[in-house]
Design a protein around this nucleic acid. Structure first.
Lengths: 161, 161
DNA sequence: GGCATATACTTCGTTTATCGTATTATACGA
DNA sequence: TCGTATAATACGATAAACGAAGTATATGCC
């Protein structure tokens, strides 16, 4: 068993940086987190439905509708009915939306460049391997491993008043 | 120059996991992110003022007041006027609050344990070293390096209507 | 073919958090 | 003691999230 506590101590203070990325990513974005990731998803898939969007951002369709509303109004996405199935709404990026994503990605990679700037090639390789491992662990154990602990039960749904 | 693009490709899809931790941390917490980190801060400092809280969560005092309101109402913190300076409000954890933090930390370390479970001691060491480096880079360059790029300017404050 | 049911979304109203501005209370320096 | 700075709260506006109800379209079944 590794020395977990040491690691815990090490990262405890920096957990906040992970959960509040907005504090070190000091960009005054005009879109919310959900909107940005929606744009990224549309960019990646080229076309998505409202249901796909809702699933991606882990929200009900009513929330997705709100996001699509705002992005459409801003002119960054185009919302159209599918011809094949007229119940379905298809979202695509507008030209402006695509441009914006290009800029976002450039800016993002600039940020990454700064963060990893003096890591050696070996460190970078290892970092990727480690991240991969961690992601695999998380996925393999998600929701499982943790449900049988006492601690976990205590944390869930304690009603006070 | 390292191969940044490869790294970018590698982590792009997982960026969402960082920005939406709630999707893999599947605990139905009764507190919001801001409230949890407020509790953690109070636990760490033992006693804090409203101003310190506001600074920590990067919000105006009016927001901090709302958080303190909710945490006080839930019975997890105690809000008292300082005797030395009666303008100052001091926040402390109640017994229930302390208990809750203990559980949170146990649960957190359980999570970490799962994530790093099959990393070797060397990997763990290196991971910590790399994280440290990255944090230093971030702090050294925060807000600076990125402000002179064209991209960045494009991203900031574009008004549409 | 027609009717019941399912699917894909939107609308609407409620709730909640955030935050700017105004206000209150206290401290402190000249 | 008066003016100003500081610490925090109160209030009102805004925005996002969401559940429930509603609308339109598709599909299965007789």
């Amino acid at each position: 068993m590794l020395d977990i506590n040491r690691f815990l101590d090490f990262i405890f203070d920096d957990l906040k940086k992970i959960f509040f990325p907005e504090e070190w990513i000091d960009v005054d974005l005009k879109f919310s987190k959900a909107e940005i990731f929606s744009l990224l998803l549309i960019d990646k898939r080229h076309e998505i439905t409202m249901s796909e969007l809702a699933e991606y951002i882990h929200s009900p369709l009513s929330t997705a509708t709100g996001i699509a509303d705002r992005l459409t109004k801003s002119g960054y996405i185009i919302r159209e009915r599918s011809e094949a199935d007229r119940r379905i709404v298809v979202l695509r990026l507008s030209h402006e939306g695509s441009q914006w994503i290009v800029h976002l990605k450039e800016w993002l990679s600039g940020y990454l460049r700064v963060i990893v700037q003096d890591l050696t090639e070996e460190e970078l390789q290892l970092l990727m391997a480690i991240i991969l491992k961690m992601i695999r662990n998380l996925e393999a154990n998600s929701g499982k491993k943790l449900h049988d602990s006492q601690t976990d039960v205590t944390l869930r749904s304690i009603d006070i008043d």
